[in-house]
Design a protein around this nucleic acid. Structure first.
Lengths: 150, 150
DNA sequence: TTTTGACTTTGACTATCTTTGACCTTTGAC
DNA sequence: GTCAAAGGTCAAAGATAGTCAAAGTCAAAA
């Protein structure tokens, strides 16, 4: 089995054991497994992305760590599904429709919906080059929806 | 756990116990914890800043002390003030500090803070030209904070 | 069989946070 | 005024994690 898969499985096991959260020390883990530390980054970047339903936080310096959390989406498969279906580009109209849809189904609170609408509103994007707007909107929409998953 | 975190937790505990105020003697605390005295300064400088909602006073000489107080301002005034003080450019660090500040003071819910943090996170801005990031972040931050005022 | 492209592995270099210690400044006691 | 007792500053060293690009692997396509 490839190194990366091994590492990924280790992390998943930790997530299953610990309460949907795994906190690792990058150098330790690398040493235990016998790989360079940056390999851990690679695994996280390729398999524990927000698109895959994970939230990753980290801290450098003494006492540093990498914390991986599984977004809890048993109750909101639909939401997760929607997040996954967001392409790399979203125009404002589609974006609005999705947000309102989620809100109507009770998957977003009033508060959340309002903030996401604000963050993706075309009028706030005036200073951005046109060709970047829809892709940037897609990034934000995804990330913000993920941020509502815990 | 790192030294710094330990110290920070100690201080927070003192704040919770004592009436939102902790008065410490730098050398004593350092000795109790087993670190150099200046470590205390470091912790205060990095975690108990005004941005985090704390006021720090100190006094040298015999009977010296460091007093840390959790600030308690008028709430929505503070929020409005903060919104107004956002310039046309905000770097990620300052932005984060402000959001966390507002959250710590109960002016943003957990949910709101998380969404705004997400929408202004540098890592989501990778596709934007550098020179636009801070100004765009300022636009979003302001608009989103305003969206929480109703 | 050869080529191509996606995925992996590595390691040099970078960024950030923490810890430490030498030296500085302020203040109260005498 | 002098001096000991605080606390303050700063820069170097230490401890982590992040980034990126080059090289390797392997299987599918041509």
């Amino acid at each position: 089995m490839s190194l990366s898969k091994e590492i990924a499985e280790m992390i998943i096991k930790m997530l299953d054991d610990g309460d949907s959260t795994a906190e690792i020390r990058r150098n330790d883990l690398a040493q235990r497994i016998g790989c360079v530390p940056s390999q851990i980054n690679y695994v996280i970047a390729s398999r524990f992305t927000p698109e895959h339903g994970y939230i990753v936080e980290s801290h450098r310096g003494g006492g540093g760590y990498i914390r991986i959390t599984r977004a809890n989406y048993d109750l909101s498969t639909l939401k997760m599904h929607l997040i996954n279906s967001i392409g790399s580009q979203v125009d404002e109209k589609t974006c609005r429709a999705n947000i309102i849809n989620l809100f109507d189904r009770g998957l977003l609170t009033d508060e959340q919906a309002r903030l996401i609408l604000t963050a993706t509103a075309e009028k706030n994007y005036r200073d951005l080059p046109e060709e970047l707007r829809n892709s940037f909107r897609a990034v934000l929409l995804k990330q913000m929806l993920l941020a509502t998953m815990n």
